[in-house]
Amino acid sequence: MEYRDYYGTLGVPREATIDEIKKAYRKLARKYHPDVSKEPDAEARMREVNEAYAVLSDAEKRAAYDELGRGYRPGQEFRPPPGWDAGFEFSGPGASGAEAADFSDFFAELFGRMRGAPAGEFRMRGEDHHAKILLELEDAYSGAVRQVTLRAPKMDDQGRVALATRTLNVKIPKGVHAGQIIRLAGQGGPGMGSARAGDLLLEVQIRPHGRYRADGRDLHVTLPVAPWEAALGAVVPVDVPDGQLQVRIPAGAQSGRVLRVRGRGIPGDPPGNLLLEIQVVLPEAATAKAKELYETMARELAFDPRRET
């Protein structure tokens, strides 16, 4: 486990006051807040910043960190002395389970082992947990089994809580789309006593695709066509995530026109539609023959694209 330099993360000296720490945190939080940041690794940086602030803004945690981290360099292998936390009494609630799960192993080792409620006759249903699952568009078409790796606080026999990593294989039903939630019964936090465990709620997100753009169950795709296909009408093959379709282009179709193929979007009840945006693509006038054809059109078609209709 690597030692983490929380002072370095926030860019403050070791003797910084709580006000200086707060100020530095605010500045970085604005820079890396994933909702607004343009930085490519904003989410990961925000996690580091939050972790550093969770420790340095809390006098008890900061004291423990200073004491244990003496002489360590960032990235250096870190081993806390056994039973180190015996001498510290953490009075606050610490980071909540959900928050702590975002933090590093280093943090979990130092502060994740907060004492939980004693296991005994006390009964309480376990917490529901929440996570995001990022799926490919193809998964929504055909269904799939996907692995989800979760870090969640887990309680041992002595009632101590530590972060544990677990991997689940989850069946992705055909037809899922962004904004849905997959509920896995009993996969959340453990119940106390004989009470049942909480549920795990997976929020579905679809990874942006290079070619298709999903909007709920509807699927948008740009369809390039030749000028003669657009002008005369044609039947053209269109690749879709689950195969190929033959689509009729009506005569006189212009760029920007959208053809709707009912029911061929993401499957479901009702299934989404496939929306094909026509884009007329001109062949280059690269050969003598091509030039001649364009010149013939210019001469023989009375066509002015800038004429007001």
Binding site: V145, L168, N169, V170, K171, P173, V176, G179, Q180, I181, I182, R183, L184, A185, Q187, L200, L201, L202
Partner: peptide, 10 residues
Amino acid sequence: DDILTGFVLE
């Protein structure tokens, strides 16, 4: 047996 099946909530 290792594959979990959930309910989809919408």
